[in-house]
Each structure stands twice: as structure tokens, then as C-alpha cells.
Nucleic acid binder design. Structure first.
Lengths: 333, 333
DNA sequence: ATAGTCCTTGTAAACGCTTTCACAACATCT
DNA sequence: AGATGTTGTGAAAGCGTTTACAAGGACTAT
């Protein structure tokens, strides 16, 4: 790899002059500028960002942690954040935390060691106080899909409770009174918020919640299949099910179908997230739209903001879910 | 940020000793080792990888370029590659090229400037000779989903032609003789290879290809909708369609349905890629399985190999597609 | 005693860049 | 004339690490 020194030698100037050309410093004579540019071309010189960052203390990069590099949810977030950031010359470095405490910690460590100018975190296991400490003595921090009350200005989150409320209310308004809830893992707060919204809706409509209506699945693909079977085995005359996400909903529908129940004729199903493929499943899934892309976009914007690179309002805050009615729910009777 | 110097001062030793502790060098007395470790804890010291890499000339990172950070295809590739690499202590840095020449170039530049130890490229626009040059004077290079004949040992690609052949043959074996092809964009080589496979199959079964059977869509979501409508407008009595990917297939099915055609009763449809949701669409899509995850895994493995960190065989080479028969195709008559 | 090992430690020179400072050369004002 | 800017330039210090290399101390073998 050629260095700035060699370029300087070739151009017959000092390193300082080459550096000035590289950084667009106007205090360089036209002659020298040309010479340097020629030398750069000829040698195929490529500045070493490591060295540069070492002295400038800026890496022009934002670090992001997501649950996993795969999957439609994170894909959209990364994609949108990257769009916003790259337009401002900031590169996004993404790493997976895999919803695992140790991995999340080491991911943070990794990004910190790389001296990212800003951190965008989607972490499940890292406890609040560690995040708080990080926010205090690290680079600017943005937390997505989670609310730290003391750091709300750095958080972007979804009103999960409301989403679940909307979904359940939709079922109630269509006359359903025996409504199951296939929730996510019991230890995720997303999951619990959604359960809360479900219960509030029941309560508002004067329906008494029954424990046998609730069952837990996991958020990944096929997460709802087993859960739905458990539910069915309980014989609890349900006519509708609110599912904590679309994967659960789709795989639960499969289980229902196998049990001879038709969706939506025998049982109505609502999902959550509105991931891309919900439009293509049959019946097309009624679900709660999660503005993921907006979340990604805002994360990028807020990052720029905190790095002092964006004008206008900060983009933190709560995002609103919306009900999308399709074909997997119908009125009772 | 605390530096190694401060740690040294606090522990009452030299920087060199701290560095030795950091790097697990055994030539440090137990006493000093403890002192240093204590100092590190107390100060919350975090080594600066930038500085480290500057001198060691290793960044312990592999750079990857994909078309976009979103989407199931790249998601899987990134995910699998990351799994393999992170287990070996190598971090994956992913950047999007957005299938755009300039962006791909600048993505390469970015990764090169970051001094990644290895590059994994999924690029569409970058011409062969630029890749060849890169392979020559840059870090180890891996090219996925594309074959550079002179660099086959660094490539991992899919036999697209064969996949298309299998798909088309399946339709032919079921008695179809008027088979459309909804291809991808005409300028992508994936797309053209798949067209070639389609035509070879027709030829092998003695069916004469007709130009009005071919229509181009794009690979993204809904890419097949318009294309299918064009196809229908041609009145070409087709009974089956081979689609160049699953997104095309799914949106084409929608167009067929809108036109009053039932899949598979009136028209059979085969997709390509076998992305996750094809199992959940209705009718469940017959498609060609593209071993994406295997491709990602191999890319990671090959990267390790080229960095001299893996034992065993190199993982380059051609991946085989497989036909997955589901419910969107049926026998004619 | 003396020389030869083996360990542990510190000193100082890199790594490739930016940036401050000083200085020369020249232009512009009293 | 002299004083005062203005510009373009290079020398050198520093960013936070690693890593020769050398040196000192504690042994052992003569």
C-alpha cells in the first residue's frame, strides 16, 4: 500500500501539502495541487482511514446493533438508516447481538473499540443501567424499539400497547368475545406490552379475560405453530386470535387449517408488524402496521442530529401503529 | 477515552507491559499482570483498535458488499457469513452497493480504506476487469453469485442455467407445451442465464420457443405484476409460466388471479429462489431452491481460508439448485 | 569468582496520517 | 523606505498502539 509519504516524494512536495490537497484545503498553489493529484493517480494511492481517524478522532461511521442480520424487520431498519446516513457521508457498520446478553455486550465493545462516532442500538438483553452508563460516557447513543424513560430523547419506539389494543378492538368490534392471544416470549418487553394492550381492549369491552386464552410462542418463523396447537388442545371455544407478530400469525393459521378450521370463517386471525409477505399469504393477513422503515429512517436522522450534522428537529419519539384490515378477520354471526 | 499510557501510569509499569497483558503475552510476572488488570478495570480502559490496526496491519474484519441491506436474500447471506466469521473473531462489515456502478465503486473504496483483511463482494455493475485488478493488488477477494472464469477459486456461484432448466423441465414433464418465461431485467447476467436454461429445456423437449412467451420484469417486490399483464395481453394461450424469482412469481400470480385465471388450475407457476415466504403463499409456490444460506456460509469459510485462518478445503465453487414441488403447478389434462 | 542462561522489564522507534508553528516570499499600505 | 499583511510551504509533534532491542536481576554451571 502506498502512503502519503511516497505521494509527497513523487510530487516533490511535503506530506503536509499532500494532506492539504487530500482535505480540500485551499491554501495550496495550483501547480502543486496538480502535481499531487497526478502522483495520487499514478501510484493508485488510497488514504488510510485508520491513521486518519487516529488523529482526527472521527471515523465517519455509525455503529448499529440489531438482533440478527437476517429477517425482514432488521433488514428494513438497516436499509433505511443506511440510506439516510450514507447521504451525509457517514457509513453504517452493523453487527448482530443475537438477543443474547454476552453477544450484545461484545457487539457494543466492538463498535466502541472501532471508535464509531455514534451508536444505534436495538438490544433486548442489555439491562437499562448498562445502557444508561453507555449513554453517559460513550459516543452519542440511540436506542430503537425500546424506551428508557430517562433518555427518551435518544429513543425511538413503537406504541406496542396501542397496537395490540387496536388489533383486539378490531376483533371485538366485529363481535368476537372469545379472543385468544398468541403472545411472544414471556421475557420480552415488546411481548408484554402487547399482552397489556390486548387485555385493556378486552376490559374496555367488558369481556373478562381468561388465562386459558393466553399462550406463548416465539417470534421467529413457525413460532406460532406449536402455540396454536396448545391453544386448540385447551378446547376453549375461541373465535379469534390476536397474534403478537406476523410469523406467529401465519404459522398459527397453518395449525388451524390442519385442525380443520377455516380462516376467517371459523376463526379470525390478526397479526402484528405488517411485514412484506403478509400481503401474499392466503387469506391476506389483517395485521398491525409497524412503521419499521420510518423507524430506520428516524434512527439515521437522529444519529446525524446527535453528531451535529443535521438541521431541524430531532427525530426521537414514539411511533404509532396502524390497523390494516385484510381478509383474515370477519364479523361474527 | 483512557489510553494505554494512563493504564501504565496507574499500574506503575511501562506501556509495553500493559500491551503484553492485553495481548496475552506470557512473559509478564503475575504481580504486574494483576496490577495492570486492576488498572484496566478501574479506568474502564478500552483499547483503540484503530491504533492497533495501524501497527499490526490487521483489522480482524472482513468487508462485504451486497445489493441492499434489506431483503430476504441478502439478509440470509449476511447472517450466515457473519456466523462463520464471528466465531473466528473476525467481524463482518457490510455495505450496500445498490446495484449501481458508482455506489459499488465507492463501497469498495470504503472497505479498502478501512483496511479490511478480506473482501466479499456481491456486485452487479462492477465490470470483470475491475474485479480482476482488485483481486490482484488488494486484500483477498471473494466474489459471490457470479463467476469470473480466471478467478474461479475465489468465486461462489449458483448454476442458474440448471435451475431454470429444472423448473422448465418440471412444467414440460407435466405436459405443458406453451410455457411463458417472466424473466428478470435484461441486463443482469443471472437473468440471462435463467433464460438460457428455460430455452434449453424447451429445446430438449422439442418445443419451439416463441418470442411472445418472454417478458421482462424486475427482481424486486411486485416485479412480476406488470410483466404478467403484458403477457396476458398478448393472447398467447400459455398454460404455465416460469418466473425468474419468487417475488415475480407471487406478484404474477396476483395478476393472473385478477384476470380470472386460477393457479394452478388454469395456469401453473414456478418461481426461483425459495425465499422464506413461498411456503406461506397460497397456493404454496413450486420453486427452485437457491441455497442462499449455504452461499453465505461458504463465503465466510472461504474468507477465513484466504486469511489463513481455516483448515480444510477451500469453499469456492458452484452451488446446485433444486426443484421444490409445492402446489402452484399441476399436470395438464 | 566468572561466565552463561533465562525472565522480566523498559526505552524508543515505528505505523500513516493531520495540524501547529515558523518562515520565506511577495504584495500592500503608511 | 519601512511596517504590515497575506500566502504557500515544510519540519516536526502527536494520535494510541506494538515490538525490536537492550538491560538488569536471578539463577545455574563451571
Amino acid at each position: 500500500m502506498t502512503t502519503i509519504k511516497e505521494v509527497a516524494a513523487r510530487a516533490g512536495v511535503s506530506q503536509a501539502t499532500v494532506s492539504r490537497v487530500l482535505n480540500g484545503n485551499p491554501r495550496v498553489s495550483a501547480v502543486n495541487r496538480q502535481r499531487v493529484e497526478a502522483a495520487i493517480q499514478e501510484l493508485g494511492y488510497r488514504p488510510n482511514t485508520l491513521a486518519k481517524s487516529l488523529v482526527t478522532r472521527r471515523t465517519h461511521s455509525a455503529g448499529m446493533i440489531v438482533g440478527s442480520l437476517g429477517g425482514p424487520f432488521y433488514g428494513d431498519i438497516m436499509h433505511e438508516a443506511e440510506r439516510v446516513l450514507s447521504r451525509a457521508g457517514i457509513h453504517l457498520i452493523v453487527t448482530a447481538g443475537n438477543d443474547h446478553l454476552e453477544e450484545e455486550r461484545s457487539a457494543v465493545e466492538f463498535l466502541l473499540e472501532r471508535r464509531c462516532d455514534c451508536l444505534i442500538l436495538h438490544v433486548n438483553e442489555l439491562p437499562d443501567h448498562e445502557l444508561a452508563r453507555l449513554a453517559q460516557d460513550g459516543p452519542p447513543l440511540i436506542i430503537i424499539n425500546r424506551l428508557l424513560p430517562e433518555h427518551a430523547a435518544h429513543c425511538i419506539w413503537l406504541d406496542n400497547e396501542k397496537g395490540a389494543y387496536l388489533a383486539t378492538r378490531h376483533l371485538l368490534e366485529r363481535g368476537h368475545r372469545h379472543i385468544a392471544c398468541i403472545a411472544g416470549p414471556a421475557d420480552k418487553c415488546d411481548s408484554n406490552e402487547r399482552i397489556a394492550g390486548y387485555r385493556r381492549a378486552l376490559h374496555d369491552f367488558g369481556v373478562t379475560y381468561r388465562p386459558e386464552w393466553l399462550v406463548h410462542g416465539h417470534f421467529a418463523e413457525n413460532g406460532g405453530y406449536e402455540a396454536a396447537r396448545v391453544l386448540l388442545s385447551r378446547q376453549s371455544d375461541i373465535t379469534a386470535a390476536f397474534c403478537a407478530n406476523d410469523f406467529i400469525a401465519v404459522s398459527a393459521m397453518e395449525a388451524f387449517r390442519e385442525a380443520g378450521l377455516s380462516v376467517p370463517d371459523d376463526i379470525s386471525v390478526v397479526g402484528f408488524d405488517d411485514v412484506m409477505f403478509t400481503r401474499h399469504v392466503m387469506p391476506r393477513l389483517t395485521t398491525i402496521h409497524f412503521p419499521v422503515r420510518e423507524m430506520g429512517r428516524r434512527a439515521g436522522l437522529l444519529a446525524l442530529h446527535l453528531m451535529g450534522m443535521a438541521e431541524g428537529e430531532a427525530a426521537s419519539g414514539r411511533l404509532q401503529p396502524e390497523l390494516v384490515v385484510r381478509a383474515s378477520t370477519r364479523s361474527l354471526g
